[in-house]
Every structure is written in structure tokens, then in C-alpha cells.
């Protein structure tokens, strides 16, 4: 008996014996479009998912991080190994992922602070790619509170613009608001397994 692989491929080849006509993919959808002030749009669309957005200038970043963590009462806060020292504000017990934090440590923390790779203004989506100041995927998953820094230079308008900037060989997580479900009467409510609170600091001049 032939193995499954060659059987399935053989079935496909005989199914396509009619050799369907070659396909031309029309690409006249909008790769980008005029969306006005991208930062304002990003802030509005992220907030639509009931995530808090704080738009600040670079010189106020550190004080905003400190204020948000304090307001949240977050004392034990997770960070990736390469979390910029300036973001590691005093008055907080920083748990950086080196040596690798255990699941229990992540789950028992008060929150996590990271940067991000790309933000899509039109959909209010923040993408993490495990790059600078982001760390591995579990860091932003288990803590119930995620404070995320988005730089103006990382904000694009549309989904196609975002994908063009991303490398699919890196593990990617697209985040649009806090975790949510529409499973009860098809009505959206926030707060299931992922972080129930997402706060974004949008740095408007960086």
C-alpha cells in the first residue's frame, strides 16, 4: 500500500486532471489609503476595543509608565531581557526574563511591560514579533495586565502595510484589545484567558 503522502498527492493530481485555467490575482484592493492622522486614528481604534490609550511625548514616557503601574497597583512586573533600563521605573519589583521565568512566576505577577513591532491604525492592532523589548510570547500572555509601548514610527495605516514590515519567520502575535469573546449570544465581552487589561502608551514623537 502506498504511503499517505503519495496517496494524497496522487489524488490531488488526478482531481486536477482538467488542469484549471491559470489564475491571475487581482491586486487592485488598497495597499494603503488616506486615513488622515494615523496616530489619532490608532488611538481611537485601539480605544474602541476598550483598551486605555495614553498619547505622550518621549520625554514623558518614563513618568507615564510609572504613573500607569502605580495607578494599577502593579508591584511585581515582568519585562523582557532587553527592556530599556529607562522604562524600569523605580518603586517596582522588576522580573526580567533572564534566567527564564517560570509559568508560575509569570502567572503570579501583577503585569508585564513591553514594546511592540508594528501597529495598524485602521484596525487598532498591535503586533509583537519577539523583537526589541518584547521577549517571548508567554510573557505577554499570562500576566493579567499588559502595558505596551507603541512608537509613532511603528504605526502604519493598513493591514497590507503592516504585513510588508513583518517577518513571518519570527513568532508573531497580533493583539487587538484585551482578550474577548463573542461566544455568548454573539455579543462581545472583554476578559477571558489572555490579559484582561491592555493599556497602551503611544509615544507621538519617537
Amino acid at each position: 500500500m502506498a504511503d499517505a503522502r503519495s496517496t494524497v498527492l496522487g489524488r490531488i493530481r488526478s482531481a486536477l486532471a482538467d488542469r484549471p485555467a491559470p489564475v491571475t490575482i487581482p491586486r487592485d484592493y488598497h495597499a494603503s489609503r488616506p486615513l488622515g492622522d494615523l496616530l489619532a486614528l490608532a488611538a481611537e481604534r485601539i480605544a474602541d476595543y476598550r483598551a486605555e490609550v495614553h498619547a505622550v511625548t518621549a520625554d514623558a514616557l518614563t513618568s507615564t509608565i510609572a504613573a500607569r503601574l502605580a495607578a494599577r497597583g502593579a508591584r511585581r512586573v515582568i519585562g523582557p531581557v532587553d527592556l530599556p533600563p529607562a522604562w524600569q521605573v523605580p518603586g517596582v519589583d522588576w522580573l526580567l526574563d533572564s534566567p527564564t521565568l517560570s509559568i508560575g512566576e509569570l502567572d503570579g505577577s501583577d503585569g508585564v511591560l513591553t514594546g511592540s513591532a508594528v501597529t495598524i491604525a485602521e484596525t487598532g492592532t498591535i503586533v509583537l514579533d519577539a523583537g526589541f523589548a518584547q521577549g517571548r510570547r508567554a510573557l505577554t500572555l499570562l500576566p493579567d495586565y499588559h502595558l505596551c509601548v507603541v512608537l509613532a514610527s511603528q504605526v502604519v495605516g493598513t493591514v497590507p502595510e503592516a504585513l510588508a514590515r513583518l517577518d513571518p519567520l519570527r513568532p508573531l502575535t497580533f493583539i487587538s484589545g484585551p482578550s474577548a469573546t463573542s461566544d455568548i449570544e454573539l455579543d462581545r465581552v472583554e476578559g477571558v484567558h489572555g490579559p484582561r487589561t491592555l493599556e497602551v502608551v503611544l509615544v507621538t514623537d519617537a
Binding site: 517571548r136 510570547r137 508567554a138 484585551p178 489572555g194
Partner: peptide, 21 residues
């Protein structure tokens, strides 16, 4: 599907990433 601009989470991975997942 859920009539949202974007669903809350989309994950993309390629094979195995050492130290992550």
C-alpha cells in the same frame, strides 16, 4: 466572522522557535 475590524488575537508561527513556545 465576528464583525470586528480585527479579532483580539492572531498567532503566526513557523516550525519551532528555540526558547519560545
Amino acid at each position: 466572522s465576528t464583525a470586528e475590524r480585527m479579532n483580539p488575537y492572531t498567532s503566526v508561527w513557523t516550525g519551532v522557535t528555540p526558547g519560545d513556545g
